[in-house]
């Protein structure tokens, strides 16, 4: 039986699926949190949470794992958003993990705090007794992510066992766990980069200025444009210059590759996304380490 007009566009169907998953988290867990990085995926995730509980406030805190190497714009955006939503913000500090000797700062030209974040994240999850942490990871981002469940079980060491995942059928999610274990939940698993931008346009979500074209001091390393910053050591031969760039993904400064671009509206960004021939992750420094870099980090407990 076909009924007129009873269909949803792909964006509305994805939205509805994600809101369903977020509400399942609020219902099945005692202390969930939402991992907020300041990037577009976690911004969309937060927007979906806002919609899913309206007119009530989002019933869980945002958790930001702060490497201390953030773009100023990210922190400003984060603080404004938290104020507007009236939610609690918790910050896990990598600098503090370093100071406490939990991790050792990498040295050398490619030093990054990206890997160190895992320890800070797991420590924060443990101290705050979070039993579920929602993240904005998407399956289309990276091949190890393609096999992630919506509800991804972590043992008491925070580790992921990709070979022993629970089957996930229909929209029945099994969030049962033992003491000390937790779940990572990925409500926007089924979204692609294009879906995210189209949705941002559809919903008119304000975005950090970093995503739009601007002038910035940058330098080129192995074909990737990186932002100049006091803690970014230059190799011999590398020089800082001003370029017209924008971010395609936003992470910590040390691993965020910038794209040369003049896109200054969401429409421009969508056109650029449609035409681009490299993956988002291709412009991230953290994934270049080896073929299985992401998978290895994920097993340890990375985002």
């Amino acid at each position: 039986m076909v009924m007129e007009g009873l269909s949803l566009s792909h964006l509305r169907e994805l939205e509805s699926e994600s809101i369903y998953v977020i509400r399942e988290v609020a219902a099945q867990f005692e202390r969930p949190c939402l991992l907020f990085s300041g990037g577009k995926d976690s911004i969309v995730l937060t927007h979906l949470a806002k919609k899913g509980f309206w007119p009530a406030k989002i019933p869980f805190p945002l958790l930001h794992i702060d490497t201390g190497h953030n773009f100023i714009e990210t922190i400003e955006y984060r603080d404004n958003l938290v104020k507007e939503l009236g939610v609690q913000l918790l910050v896990g500090s990598v600098q503090q993990s370093i100071d406490q000797g939990r991790v050792v700062e990498e040295t050398g030209y490619n030093a990054s705090r990206n890997v160190l974040q895992t320890v800070t994240l797991l420590d924060t999850i443990e101290t705050c007794k979070f039993d579920a942490a929602m993240g904005g990871a998407r399956r289309d981002e990276e091949k190890a992510r393609a096999k992630e469940r919506f509800f991804s079980h972590r043992d008491e060491f925070g580790q992921w066992d990709p070979k022993n995942q629970r089957p996930e059928l229909w929209n029945i999610f099994n969030g049962k766990k033992k003491m000390g274990e937790h779940f990572r939940v990925f409500p926007i698993s089924n979204w692609t980069e294009m879906d995210v931008w189209q949705y941002i346009l559809l919903e008119n979500i304000p975005m950090p200025s970093l995503y739009f074209t601007h002038q910035r001091e940058v330098f080129n390393r192995d074909g990737v444009w990186l932002a100049a910053a006091p803690f970014m050591k230059l190799r011999p031969g590398e020089k800082v210059e001003v370029r017209t760039v924008r971010c395609r993904t936003i992470g910590d400064i040390s691993c965020t590759g910038l794209t040369l671009s003049t896109a200054d509206s969401l429409e421009d960004i969508i056109a650029e996304t449609a035409a681009t021939r490299v993956t988002e992750r291709g412009s991230r420094f953290d994934d270049k380490r080896s073929e299985a870099a992401m998978e290895d980090r994920k097993k340890e407990g990375y985002f």
Binding site: R139, D140, K143, A144, A146, K147, P162, K163, Q165, S189, N190, T192, M194, E291, A292, E295, D296
Partner: peptide, 22 residues
């Protein structure tokens, strides 16, 4: 479409993986 290392090593697909295109 070969996802995880275990699979790459064995040369077979052992779990459900999701792909997207439009």
């Amino acid at each position: 479409t070969d996802g995880l290392r275990a699979e790459r090593e064995q040369g077979i697909t052992i779990d459900v993986a999701y792909r997207y295109f439009a």
